[in-house]
Design a protein around this nucleic acid. Sequence first.
DNA 1: CTGATTTATTATCATAGATCAATTTTTTAG
DNA 2: CTAAAAAATTGATCTATGATAATAAATCAG
Lengths: 205, 205
Amino acid sequence: MYKVLLDGSKDTVTSILKDIFKNISFSNEESKLLQSKLKKSDFRKGDFLLQPSEYIDKIYYVYSGCLRSYFIDNEGKEHTLQFAIKDWWISDYISLYGNSTSTSVSYIECIKKATVYGISKKEFDIICYDYPSIGQFYIKKMEAAFATFQKRILENLTLSAKDRYLNFISMYPDIESNVKNYHIASFLGITTESLSRIRKELAND
Amino acid sequence: MYKVLLDGSKDTVTSILKDIFKNISFSNEESKLLQSKLKKSDFRKGDFLLQPSEYIDKIYYVYSGCLRSYFIDNEGKEHTLQFAIKDWWISDYISLYGNSTSTSVSYIECIKKATVYGISKKEFDIICYDYPSIGQFYIKKMEAAFATFQKRILENLTLSAKDRYLNFISMYPDIESNVKNYHIASFLGITTESLSRIRKELAND
DNA sequence: CTGATTTATTATCATAGATCAATTTTTTAG
DNA sequence: CTAAAAAATTGATCTATGATAATAAATCAG
């Protein structure tokens, strides 16, 4: 099955489009266009999708494995913005969408052997313009991601570190097994020592 | 000028469309469609756009004034998600886009005499589908908002309360004069007492 | 399999910001 | 303009989490 994936036969590529774009049905022409724009890449644990010096102009669909995006602040501390597993999209949204005054250095790192499909954001914009169903699909994705981030802000404002951790493991049970504790800590905004204490406390119940 | 706005003459409404949708140029047909869907409302300080019991299905363009969206947690504390002034869009994104398991109660409150234009999200989705330039416009808006929220998450993870406050007043100089200190505090995720101390400290420089 | 490196845990102490309580200042309603 | 209500300030504690440092456990490379 994995072999079939790699040989890039037409059927298989079409089935990947189905995977990525779910319930959207494409004409042959649309299918071909998308196939020509989506570039498959494989990464091993520890690889970076993106060097901080590189200008990012792509968004990535995660087909398998696990990635995380993070940035390093002035004091050299890592802050995890996002984990992405199967079916998520990941990119450096701040440098892609925000005004470019950002001085922050951001990375996307593979933390579990992954296959992704990347597409140039510029080209994707044009596709969204030309094909309403794809535009609609992208809008839905963005909205869901937006709601997720808004929830996260609320949680950061509202919950204790312990409750945020509990939330995290219930929300992302699949991710937890792939990542280091310090990844989770930097996602929750606490130190790895604090997370360690929380885990101990939870174990004694 | 304000009178002209109220009489709803064709020219003026068109100019509002220009305000809302910026550099997009519409055909007569598109113009009429949008005009028929956008509903103007005026609010006075203290009014709520939205009762928490109401099901939200609209997004609002802020033409003038200032609004804020917030929610109240289990302990009765307010948490400000967003301030919106001229040219911002505001809605309850979590209940609109997130899966509806959310138990949080959220409000949109007018904190300075405001005029907004509301449009049903469902209808707007259809419009985005039918008119690529509007879809593209909306995607851009969402992406910018997304980047803003991502930045805010990073700031919450990275900066001290003092630095977040300094950021806030430099980012939103127009908003600060409209809002109560406790609004800002609840946006920054600190108590009003802490904000007071920070302000005092900053004054002694 | 083994030593080297990375990650996680634990303990002690320090501190930003919370909580509680009282007072002053500002805003609002009549 | 004035009394009442709302908001902001200040002071005295308290606490969750950070910082530092040492050790233990887990993972990795050869």
